[in-house]
Amino acid sequence: MKRPATRLLCSIAIALYCLAPFFWFILTSFKSPAELTAIPPELIPSFHVGFYRSALQNYGLLRYIVNSAIVAGAATLVTIAIGALAAYVMARFRFRWTNIYLLMLLAIAMFPQIAIAGPIWSILDRLGWLNTYHGLVAAYVALSLPLAIWILTTFFREVPGEIEEAALIDGCSRLQALYRVVLPLAAPGILTASLLVFIYAWNEFFFALIIVTDPDFHTLPVGIALFPGEYTMPWGEIAAASTLATTPLILLTLIFQRGIVRGLSAGAVKG
């Protein structure tokens, strides 16, 4: 594509195709009940916030947001903490099975969720962890660890061994060398892995649905899915809730965009 105009048009078309649903529910969320059902439909809403108020007051949206924040935040922290240690070992100590182990991790990450849903449910049931935050966090940690270890290993391998050896000689223990020198240097990788895990846990629907049946512990995706009543379909409230659910992810991604881009491309090319 040589001409900038063509390229621009194509970009806009692709962006529109991807973003149209988002625009739709964002615009819908700001409509008034009358605008919502108007025929022909109004494109530009009157920036009415009634649906937001209703979603928060009548549908317990705040509860779901808090639940999601707790679960996704905790899952991210635990995953990165465990993943960093595992990845550090993968990156620094070459065992005979290191690469096979990494490949197995990748294979595990490819398992369809439905295949492991039963076992996970049974385990959590025996532990009495159904309908708890830690039950859901445990599942998310298990599911996102392979990806996190994989990403972090790539980053840790990029940190020159000599810098770490310098730290060991300067008086660090292995663990001190890890968090004083290796982690700061692998910060883009930590950031990338954290965001991916957080987004995964924030959006996850399937396990959240089967592990948690108590409405007090529902996360956003499940909570929103349960908005419709037996005889009602609250489109406005669903749109408002979806907008609120998406905003934090968009903000996080925009804030850390540069770090992530560096993160995802590192390892591909030796810098």
Binding site: I163, E165, I169
Partner: peptide, 20 residues
């Protein structure tokens, strides 16, 4: 003994400064 218990300093060919 571990490196840190030997009371030695090491100057690397690549300098190995802490970049951050």
């Amino acid at each position: 003994l571990a490196p840190r218990e030997r009371d030695i300093a090491f100057v690397f060919q690549s300098y190995a400064l802490y970049p951050h």
